[in-house]
Structure formats: structure tokens, C-alpha cells
């Protein structure tokens, strides 16, 4: 029983962190209709940078997101301005190929600059745990989860309470109507891309403590995040949260009762089953397509 509760608790912690990582992807998709394959590479880029920062200055890796998030916001904005926005109006497949190319470039640069080996940030609390009754909660996971929740909560407030957030949501629902009421599509898209990148800034910093990583790990991460987004419904933020929790739980439960090797596979299996039953994902709405 204790083992089960332990697995559940860990699943929820991991799920919360996944939710933060996937939120950027789903935000970008919602507004730009772009599947940002480079989101995983963003995470690894930030993780590597956080690791370097931690080694150089001793700054706590999770706290380092205070630095990495604004940096990624800026990088995301620039990337949209100079690369992504150039393919606006082209077929959706081109954006997939473009962001795939960006992911490769980031991987290649990391390979050359930092070398192709595993890294992991190990702050002092790295191997410590909180004890709640019989359950052990690793401190790193708890701190990561808390950071993720704070950022997700902030993101939610920005999207629902500010004019900018409403502009983003309006654009994601109907870009042409949003443009008609004076919301600049390009500026909103740039903002959404920057926000999505900034969330990868926080996610990557958390990742650096929780998982060993190397330049090519971004493939694992992007397929995991995409799985979450497909499960939840493309472009839906509550969907991403829900999908992340389900998959976080599925993964930890398999790792506890099955084997670690197969847990990633269970991840994909869940996605397949959901797609069989509900092709549009859990929260995916089918909007009318005839009225343009």
C-alpha cells in the first residue's frame, strides 16, 4: 500500500513538472498553429546552461529559472521575429520541418560546445527526501513541482486576467476575428512564442536536477511532451495539465510495478489507446470549420 501511495505521489509530482513543460508547447500551438518540435531542444539547451551556471557560480539550479526564463523569453521572441515568422501563411508541414531543423541546430551546437556526454546538476539536497509517514518524497522533485505550479499559476493568471492574455486566447480561438478587433496577429504570435519558450526556460532548469541529460536527449523529451499534448488535446492548457498528470502517473506506476525500461513505452501505449477512443484528445474541441 505504502508503495502504491509512494508511486502515486511521485506520479503527481512528475506530472506537474511535465505539465509545465508541455504548457509552452500547447500555448505555441494554440496561437501559432505550429507544432514546435524544437521545444525539447529548448529544454536541453536550458538544462545545459543551468548546469554550467550551477557549476560556475553555485546558483541553485531550480532557482536559476529566474535567470533562464527571461533569457528564453528573449530568445523565443528573437527566434519568432527572425525565423518562425518568415514561414507564416505556408503549409503547416513546413513549420514542423522548420522547428525540427532548429532542434537539430541546437543539438549540433550543444554537441560541439559541450561535448556528447551525460550531465546532471547535483545540488546539496539532490539525494535528500522529505518523509511524510511512510512515504519518501525526494526534495528535488518537490521543489521542482512547486516551481512548476507557481509558474503554471502565473501563466494562468496572465492568460485570464490581463489584456495581453486575453489577446493571446482570442487569437488562438479565431485569428481573423482577433485581428478585426485590433489585436495584432504578429505581435501576439511573437508573445506566445516567447512565453512558450520562457516556460521551457523554467522546465529546463528543473530538468537539469531531475534527469541526466545529453544533447540528443531532446528527442525523448519532445516525444514525451507531444504525447502529453496529443493526449490532452492540441492547444488546450487544461488538457495539457490533465494529460501530463495521467502520463506522469502511468510512467511511475509502470516503473514501480513493471520495469523502468518499459515505462516510456507505456507512455506511448496510453496515447495510442486514447487516440483510438477519442481522436481529438481528451479536451480537444471540434470547432466549426466552415465559417472563416
Amino acid at each position: 500500500m505504502a508503495q502504491f501511495v509512494q508511486a502515486l505521489a511521485l506520479g503527481v509530482l512528475i506530472g506537474g513538472i511535465y505539465a509545465l513543460m508541455a504548457s509552452g508547447l500547447t500555448l505555441i500551438f494554440g496561437v501559432l498553429r505550429i507544432v514546435n518540435i524544437a521545444q525539447g531542444a529548448f529544454l536541453i539547451l536550458v538544462a545545459t546552461f543551468t548546469w554550467w551556471l550551477w557549476r560556475a557560480t553555485g546558483l541553485d539550479p531550480i532557482l536559476a529559472s529566474v535567470v533562464t526564463a527571461p533569457l528564453m523569453f528573449g530568445l523565443g521572441w528573437l527566434m519568432h521575429r527572425f525565423v518562425i515568422s518568415r514561414i507564416r501563411g505556408q503549409a503547416a508541414s513546413m513549420s514542423v520541418l522548420l522547428t525540427f531543423g532548429i532542434a537539430l541546430v541546437i543539438e549540433g551546437v550543444l554537441n560541439i560546445v559541450t561535448g556528447n556526454r551525460f550531465r546532471s546538476a547535483t545540488p546539496s539536497y539532490f539525494e535528500e527526501s522529505f518523509r511524510v509517514g511512510d512515504i519518501l518524497l525526494p526534495k528535488a522533485q518537490v521543489y521542482g513541482f512547486l516551481a512548476a505550479m507557481v509558474v503554471l499559476g502565473g501563466l494562468y493568471l496572465v492568460l485570464t486576467r490581463t489584456w495581453t492574455g486575453r489577446a493571446i486566447r482570442a487569437t488562438s480561438q479565431n485569428p481573423s476575428a482577433a485581428a478585426l478587433v485590433g489585436i495584432g496577429a504578429t505581435a501576439t504570435a511573437a508573445l506566445a512564442f516567447a512565453l512558450g519558450s520562457a516556460s521551457a526556460g523554467v522546465g529546463g532548469s528543473i530538468l537539469s536536477v531531475l534527469y541526466p541529460f545529453f544533447p540528443a536527449s531532446h528527442y525523448d523529451w519532445i516525444s514525451r511532451l507531444l504525447g502529453i499534448v496529443v493526449l490532452g488535446g492540441m492547444g488546450s492548457l487544461p488538457g495539457a495539465l490533465c494529460g501530463a498528470l495521467i502520463l506522469g502517473l502511468a510512467e511511475t506506476l509502470t516503473a514501480t510495478y513493471g520495469s523502468l525500461q518499459w515505462s516510456t513505452l507505456v507512455f506511448y501505449l496510453v496515447i495510442m489507446v486514447v487516440l483510438l477512443a477519442r481522436p481529438q484528445g481528451l479536451f480537444g474541441a471540434r470547432l466549426r470549420e466552415d465559417a472563416v
Binding site: 520541418l97 522548420l98 525540427f100 531543423g101 532548429i102 532542434a103 537539430l104 541546430v105 541546437i106 543539438e107 549540433g108 551546437v109 554537441n111 560541439i112 556528447n116 544533447p215
Partner: peptide, 11 residues
């Protein structure tokens, strides 16, 4: 490693 970068840039 550099092949990944080159192919990515070409893409």
C-alpha cells in the same frame, strides 16, 4: 556531432 549541425542548418 558536426553533421547534426550541418544537416540542421541545411534543413
Amino acid at each position: 556531432q558536426s553533421r547534426v549541425l550541418i544537416l540542421g542548418l541545411i534543413l
